[in-house]
Design a protein around this nucleic acid. Structure first.
Length: 461
RNA sequence: GGCGCGGUGGCAGAAUGGCUAUGCAGAGGACUGCAAAUCCUUGGAUGCCGGUUCGAUUCCGGCCCGUGCCUCCA
């Protein structure tokens, strides 16, 4: 792919041409879930957004030249609190929740990341990082805690564009007495005997929130990597502090070149919250809507914009997908061209949607291109070469969005279709309708076109 | 109080210093065993006030409104 990729960088507040450190190994880190509860819809947005970016990067740099790391935070006070409430063991809770996360994100057709490091598997790296920070004068020990000393870093606050003074002025929380500076944050904290903990040079304890990402990113992606992503709310303090830890440990080497942050989502224009009763887990939604529909809805606004979720939006996305599937081709096209979808990346048909995605992941623009493509396809004669070619492009383009991956049992389908065709010629409409119902059981809704032909679309009940 | 983001047609949602997407919804027509889809035609927008400019929705300033973050929430 010749086209350059442009990405908006929170660090510079500008759209920049993406230039990887090593184009043989493009590296991206995205903050993953804390596994104490089912993922909610808000958790799904960064997953789908960065999955889309992952797909685009893999296309441009090669399937095996992109490393995507997304962590699992499996040690955290929220986890401890939940386990304490319910009596479930921490291990059981985190294992079960991690599995549910994989299931839910898989249902949204998010590819598994290349690496999924777990915090509890990297305690030694975190301790080592703390020791480096202490040795270099960026951290200190106080009352069993290890704290990062913010004034030790001259340019702290670059990502969020906040000065240390501003932070302190706006602080809403009491400053712990053992902190040398009000802005200092915890790298390591002591654990009570009944809390999970690991032996360390500072006694038995557990990591602070930010240190795990620095340690895991450093281990798996190297000192400096290409893209670091997450939700808008992570800019401060989480990502700011990751930068502080990693840069100071590595004598100023940048942690990541490009910082990307997705916007929040609202539900019917309200903030999603338990008190408003509009709090949905991904799994809740999957009971009512196909994952592909939810995925499209999550991509229907640009990732940096707020995204409003509603039942109407889901309905509209469902109809849109059905239209695209219908445009994809009649059964003949499916049989001849798309039987093995894993081969479709070899088609190398340039798609305009691809170009839209190269412009800072403009997914709404990509949707427009797919709509345009579908409209063109519908105007062309069924079975024509031109129509097939555009169908190729549609299928090909949609793969970048992780859409139009749906397939059918081809042999059964072909058999039923030809039987129905015959019944139709005989005008045996009772049989025709009965066969339509049978085809529907395969998950396909067929439609009769103007010339007795068929279009195909998934049937989602 | 500090830092930031946004206000585009009925709704959703891109883009752009001049020719203003796209989808849904609406109106009219075509097609049609049923059902559905599709096709053709069509009305409709850039919060307010100034400035820069031959020309601004787009750039600059002010205002109004909404919204996010400010130590563990994607």
């Amino acid at each position: 792919m010749e086209k350059d990729i442009f990405l908006y960088n929170t660090l510079t507040r500008q759209k920049e041409t993406f230039k990887p450190v090593d184009d043989k190994n493009v590296r991206m880190y995205v903050c993953g879930p804390t596994v104490y509860d089912r993922a909610h819809l808000g958790n799904a947005r960064p997953v789908v957004v960065f999955d889309t970016l992952f797909r685009l990067l893999r296309h441009k740099y090669g399937q095996n030249h992109v490393t995507y790391a997304r962590n699992i935070t499996d040690v955290d006070d929220k986890i401890m609190a939940r386990a304490h409430e319910t009596g479930e063991s921490i291990e059981s809770l985190t294992t079960r929740t991690t599995q549910a996360y994989h299931d839910d994100m898989g249902a949204l057709n998010a590819l598994p990341p290349t690496i999924e490091p777990r915090a509890t598997g990297h305690i030694a790296e975190m301790i080592a990082l703390n020791e480096v920070l202490i040795a270099k004068g960026h951290a200190y020990v106080a009352e069993g805690h290890v704290l990062f000393h913010v004034p030790s870093m001259k340019n702290y606050g670059q990502l969020s564009r906040r000065s240390r003074d501003e932070l302190i002025a706006g602080a809403r929380v009491d400053v712990a007495p053992y902190k040398k500076d009000a802005a200092d944050f915890v790298l390591w904290k002591p654990s009570a005997p009944d809390q999970p903990g690991w032996e360390s040079p500072w006694g038995r304890g557990r990591p602070g929130w930010h240190i795990e990402c620095s340690a895991m990113a450093g281990k798996h992606l190297g000192t400096t990597f290409d893209i670091h992503g997450g939700g808008l709310d992570l800019i401060f303090p989480h990502h700011e502090n990751e930068i502080a830890q990693s840069c100071c440990a590595h004598d100023g080497a940048p942690l990541a070149h490009v910082w990307m942050h997705n916007g929040f989502l609202t539900i019917n224009h309200d903030k999603m919250s338990k008190s408003l009763g509009n709090f949905f887990t991904v799994n809740d939604l999957l009971q009512k809507h196909h994952g592909e529909v939810i995925r499209l809805a999550l991509l229907s606004a640009h990732y940096r914009q707020p995204l409003d979720f509603s039942e109407e939006k889901l309905q509209e996305c469902k109809v849109t997908l059905e239209k695209w599937y219908s445009a994809l081709g009649n059964c003949t096209d499916i049989e001849n061209e798309y039987a093995d979808l894993s081969q479709r990346h070899q088609l190398q048909v340039f798609g305009p949607a691809e170009e839209a995605l190269c412009d800072d992941l403009n997914t709404p623009q990509a949707m427009t291109e797919l709509n345009q493509l579908a409209a063109k396809i519908f105007k062309l004669p069924l079975g024509s070469d031109e129509r097939k070619k555009l169908s190729h492009t549609l299928r090909y383009s949609a793969q970048f969005l992780g859409l139009l991956y749906w397939t059918i049992d081809q042999s059964k389908f072909d058999h039923l279709i030809s039987a129905r065709m015959q019944a139709r010629h005989k005008k045996d409409f009772a049989k025709v309708d009965q066969l339509r119902a049978e085809i529907q059981k395969l998950g396909v809704q067929i439609e009769d076109g103007p010339k007795g032909t068929y279009s195909l679309r998934p049937f989602w009940g």
